[in-house]
Design a protein around this nucleic acid. Structure first.
Lengths: 337, 337
DNA sequence: GCCTAAAAGCGAAACGTTTTATTTATTCTA
DNA sequence: TAGAATAAATAAAACGTTTCGCTTTTAGGC
């Protein structure tokens, strides 16, 4: 049905190799160029990437495996990644594994069958077992947002400095006199959860404050979870004077919980949130928060992947650590001592 | 590097065709089956989908073009679609065109080059010009969420009955005595926007109420837009007694605006929202809203696409219209007359 | 105009599968 | 146990590109 290069060859009277050269940026005599272009138009020729892939043994497809597609932070990273990759003519196959390691492994196999040129993974399986095969096959593998201990030195990654980010937020609070600081974390055992907890604990220690487990809650990185965690913290007999919430959805949930309870920010309670997404826009313009550069994360990941694809040196591990920013708002007040 | 069927053939002493038959479900003598499986294990053979695609001239890839990846309604549809398609061994290439018709057209071309087996599109370009080529090429094209007039009869689609959905909501309000009903719509000229507006106007007419343009606002389908639109409606001298908000993000924005203004729902103002997404969870359990079955939309779309792929009849147009549901909460009160 | 160097064009093989038409092996019947 | 009928295995061609090693054409200098 569709026209092939062979048809172009017949139509123009030129050799197949010449047609191919034309499409691959080689030089072709002016009159032949015209001839070819006319034939392309006439026959509605569209190059067959599949055949090209078979021959060149690269597909210009990147597999992206994520825990959840319904997460604003993740989609904004993917968005910026996809944008850059597509501009370089790379397609992105997204696999949502619903935070299930089994599905994640299946996704890896699925993508490997399809001979993707590279793999970008926001990992669910914290052991890294699922990445054995792709690593062995020699294709570039890139972790995003979450490192995996056992893969250290074997894999590249783009992350933020979570310890520092959390430390910065908490230190801000302690420096203003807060000593009872509620922390709302994501799911236990995740890399980011652990790192942010570490940052929190470090900052408390620096301020000479003993941590209280009552103040540490896990909100599953969902709006609902954040809402619940905030509710619980508010019910404590010894209610915290400040809250540090460690992602976007949970921050939203927390703010809603506060509003439902008629708690004023910062008069009654100080809050530092996490992630500035477009959604926030004008709605909480006064929120003090830790801003993760999700656009940069996506951009760095895409560019790092492109680098890895074009450099022959395989098995090199590069870790890009991006820094977060504390955006001052009006949701934190100094405690009168 | 990677093992091929030819290697298996050499290893087992069997013919290439036999190996192929084995992989494609043909019958093979027991001892040969064992032989092949051993060789597969030994050589770490992984089938090359690219070669297979070239030969069979289908790629088992579906292209999905959407206006925006950062939209909870859209990602929840994609999520459920991807799930079903991947189970049938179809990969999904997602292209986010940022609501830009030019990018949308580019995405179509991009996917066509890659010889996707089918195209699913939540269309940005309301003229449908971008779908000419794929339609002509004979691959299945499926619209989701938004119809395109000029393509009627030429293309299949999965949509909800927007006119009815909006009518249902507004009729609920009028039946309870509301006559000043604010409407917060998405971007002008979109299919869903127009349809929902029609449903609103119909219901007003049925109730003998003359529409007031002041009450009709466009919130761009974003949380921010919804927030702004609500703010504006609240400032009207003749403030509406009820609000109907036509998507998830804007509903969220509206609720925040109400909370910021200390307006109680439903005591001070009745609200009917749109879209029940997981995010909502426990947070607004009492919100009355129109529930779009996004999981079903994704499922129906995936299944319809699979149908189209397996049936030879090309160019048949099937429109699946799903119904919405009015979920009663406590955010609407009857007006004392 | 002739010769040479450089540029452009060419045929054929290859990438890793599937498939068709054919050959070979197996099973069953009598 | 021969022969027919059936089941399984096979070789070779094809899918639409790229690329290698050669041949032909062109342009330039004298």
């Amino acid at each position: 049905m569709a026209a092939t290069m062979k048809d172009l060859s017949r139509e123009t009277g030129l050799g197949l190799a010449t047609i191919s050269k034309y499409f691959n940026g080689g030089t072709v005599r002016e009159k032949n160029r015209v001839l070819i272009e006319a034939a392309v138009k006439k026959l509605h020729y569209v190059p067959n990437e599949v055949a090209r892939s078979l021959k060149t043994s690269h597909t210009r497809v990147i597999g992206v495996i994520i825990p959840e597609l319904s997460n604003a932070f993740i989609t904004s990273i993917i968005s910026s990644m996809e944008d850059i990759l597509r501009k370089q003519d790379y397609a992105v196959i997204v696999c949502d594994c619903r935070s299930d390691p089994k599905r994640e492994k299946e996704a890896v196999d699925f993508l490997l069958h399809r001979r993707v040129d590279g793999l970008i993974n926001m990992a669910t399986d914290t052991t890294g077992a699922h990445l054995k095969a792709p690593l062995a096959s020699g294709i570039p593998v890139l972790l995003v947002d979450r490192l995996i201990d056992s893969l250290q030195g074997k894999v590249s990654a783009v992350v933020i400095d979570n310890v520092h980010a959390a430390g910065q937020a908490v230190q801000k609070l302690t420096s203003l006199g807060h000593r009872q600081i509620g922390l709302i974390l994501g799911s236990p055992n995740l890399y980011t959860t652990n790192q942010r907890l570490t940052g929190y604990l470090n900052a408390l220690q620096d301020a000479g404050i003993a941590p209280d487990n009552e103040y540490i809650r896990y909100g599953d990185y969902t709006m609902d979870g954040g809402y619940q965690a905030a509710q619980e913290l508010l019910k404590l007999k010894n209610r915290p004077t400040a809250l540090f919430v460690t992602n976007f959805e949970m921050t939203l949930g927390t703010m809603l919980a506060l509003q439902h309870n008629n708690i004023r920010v910062p008069e009654d309670l100080s809050v530092i949130g996490f992630d500035k997404l477009e959604l926030f826009g004008e709605i909480f313009p006064d929120l003090t928060l830790i801003r993760q550069p999700q656009l940069s994360i996506g951009r760095e990941a895409a560019n790092l992947m492109l680098d890895m694809l074009s450099s022959k040196e395989t098995g090199v591990s590069r870790i890009v650590t991006l820094t977060t920013e504390l955006t001052e708002g009006k949701s934190v007040k100094a405690l009168k001592v």
